[in-house]
Each structure stands twice: as structure tokens, then as C-alpha cells.
């Protein structure tokens, strides 16, 4: 298997009163998009703070590219772009001034990539840094971090504050970055976006990793589930006669769920052509279900 880029071993940071993170193990491979999900206060940000070398672990360690995250924090930053979870900009007048200062510190000389990001996110950085809307601030933070064009992206809830359209733009950008071979570690509270772009998702609760889900396989499932509602229960009976495989009629008698192998989807649709369909949609909440399942079992 490919090289490990981010590795947490037995990582513990105890803030007392059961707060903090305990025995966290993570293993992020090169080129992977790794999601990190959990409720508020579950320890996502603490884990990321350890990765960035902002706090020193009580026990265990995190290493990035085999370098200790605390000791070699500065060295690691040459390979990592970081978007903080909380947006707080320095006391500079405009977004442009801030991006310039950041480019200085990141030793960015070539601004083509930054300008591309600005265009993509439709951000006008000349606005007053303090008067920006939440979404604009988030975009500015994204550009400030990503312009470094590092091989590893660590992002703490990068999509908060973005409108649904911008969120899609951002997720597309992440897909593109993945194509370019970047390793992406992002935390989020929104399971849908995790399902859309992540390969793996680690679930954290009360400071403990309670499971690592393989999001890729959920996205590429071989069997699709459809929920179908027809105009009457008579029609439903007719459908049951024409399609026997894995069809389960619900109690109301008018709707049902059908599990179809991916390659047979066409056939099912061909059959349905002759019915009066009230609604038809793919049941696609596999990851969310798995997530809820994990929480229930806790």
C-alpha cells in the first residue's frame, strides 16, 4: 500500500473532566482524502491542533511525513496548508493586505494559483477585512491557506459559512486537488460532503475514535436502493408481479423499496415506464446510516 503521510499513534491530550482526546490512532495515506467527523466538542479541533504542533500531546504522538508534529512543527509547515476552524484575521485593513502578508510568509512568489482560487471562489479581496461576511471570510481563509499549494491540506471545517453553490465549488476544487495527488485531511459536521469526496471517514466521539468508515465503497456500491411510490395500491400489486427480485412493499401498499444491482438499473426503469409514478428516488444515505449506527452503539 502507499506511503503514510499523517500518522497519529496513541495520541492523548487530556484537558481534564473527560475533555480532550484519548488514544487516537489515525493513518492517512498519500493521495487520500480523509474525513474527520464528530459532534461539537468531540475532539476534532484538538486532534488538528496536535497535528499542527500548536499543542504538545500528553501521550503518544502525531507525525507528518515521519516528522514529529510538535518538535518539527516549522519544518512540517513547508509541506502543509492549514485552514483554521475559527476565522480570525490579523489587524490588517483589507483582504488583499492579508493575502499579501500571507504570501510573504509562505514565500509565494507566483500568484497565478492564488488568482485562480480567487476567481473560482468569486472572491473580491479588496474588501475591508473586518466588515466581510462570514462566507467571504471563509473564502479568504481558504485562499490564504491554499495559495501555498502544499502537498498536504489540513482543514478544520472548511465549508462552514459557504452557501450551497460555493460549497459545491469548493468540493470540486478538492476533487481537483486530489487528482493532482494531494493528501487531504478535513474535518466536518456535514456527512453529505464527506460522502461526496472522502475516501475514508474517521468518526470521533468524546475524544475517542469510534470507527473508521470506508466512504469510497459506500459511494461506489454495487447495489442501488430505490424508493418508489405509485399512484395506487393496485398498480403496486401489478408491479410486484412484473418485478420480483428484492422488492419490499411498505405498509401503505402504494410504495416499496427495490434493491437492484447497478447493471440492472436500466431494466427496472424500463419496467417502471408503464406505471404512474408519484415519486422515485435513490436511497443514498449509507454513510449517514453507518455513522448513526456507530453513535447508537456507543
Amino acid at each position: 500500500m502507499s506511503e503514510t503521510v499523517i500518522k497519529a499513534e496513541n495520541l492523548t491530550k487530556d484537558y481534564g473532566k473527560n475533555r480532550g482526546i484519548f488514544q487516537v490512532d489515525l493513518d492517512v495515506k498519500r493521495g487520500e482524502t480523509f474525513g474527520f467527523i464528530g459532534t461539537n466538542g468531540s475532539g476534532k479541533t484538538t486532534t488538528i491542533r496536535n497535528m499542527m504542533g500548536f499543542v504538545r500531546p500528553d501521550n503518544g504522538k502525531v507525525s507528518i511525513l515521519d516528522k514529529d508534529a510538535w518538535r518539527d512543527a516549522t519544518e512540517i509547515k513547508k509541506y502543509v496548508s492549514y485552514i483554521p476552524g475559527e476565522i480570525a484575521f490579523p489587524a490588517l485593513p483589507t483582504g488583499t493586505a492579508f493575502l499579501k502578508a500571507q504570501a510573504d510568509m509562505l514565500h509565494v512568489k507566483d500568484f497565478t494559483y492564488m488568482n485562480r482560487l480567487l476567481k473560482l471562489l468569486q472572491l473580491d479581496p479588496t474588501a475591508n477585512l473586518r466588515r466581510m461576511s462570514k462566507g467571504m471570510k471563509q473564502k479568504t481563509a481558504i485562499v490564504a491557506a491554499l495559495m501555498g499549494d502544499r502537498e498536504i491540506l489540513v482543514m478544520d471545517e472548511p465549508t462552514t459559512g459557504l452557501d450551497p453553490l460555493m460549497r459545491d465549488v469548493f468540493l470540486d476544487l478538492m476533487r481537483e486537488e486530489k487528482e493532482r495527488g494531494k493528501t487531504i485531511f478535513m474535518s466536518s459536521q456535514i456527512i453529505d460532503e464527506m460522502e461526496e469526496i472522502c475516501d475514508k471517514v474517521a468518526v470521533i466521539n468524546n475524544g475517542h475514535i469510534i470507527g473508521i468508515l470506508d466512504a469510497w465503497s459506500y459511494r461506489h456500491e454495487d447495489v442501488k436502493n430505490f424508493e418508489i411510490e405509485l399512484a395506487s395500491s393496485g398498480e403496486m400489486q401489478k408491479l410486484c408481479e412484473q418485478w420480483r427480485e428484492n422488492l419490499k412493499v411498505n405498509e401503505d401498499g402504494r410504495s416499496c423499496t427495490v434493491a437492484v444491482e447497478k447493471k440492472n438499473t436500466g431494466k427496472l426503469l424500463a419496467v417502471l415506464k408503464n406505471f404512474r409514478i408519484v415519486s422515485l428516488h435513490e436511497k443514498h444515505k449509507a454513510l449517514a446510516d453507518a455513522f448513526k449506527e456507530l453513535y447508537r452503539s456507543e
Binding site: 499542527m52 504542533g53 500548536f54 512543527a73 516549522t74 519544518e75 509547515k77 513547508k78 502543509v80 496548508s81 492549514y82 483554521p84 475559527e86 476565522i87 480570525a88 484575521f89 490579523p90 489587524a91 500571507q102 510568509m105 509562505l106 514565500h107 490564504a144 491557506a145 501555498g148
Partner: peptide, 11 residues
């Protein structure tokens, strides 16, 4: 939290 932007660079 704005110190994060400084510390996320090789400084």
C-alpha cells in the same frame, strides 16, 4: 486565533 495564520507558515 489569528496567530494560526502565522504559525501555519514555516515561521
Amino acid at each position: 486565533g489569528s496567530m494560526a495564520y502565522v504559525l501555519s507558515t514555516p515561521t
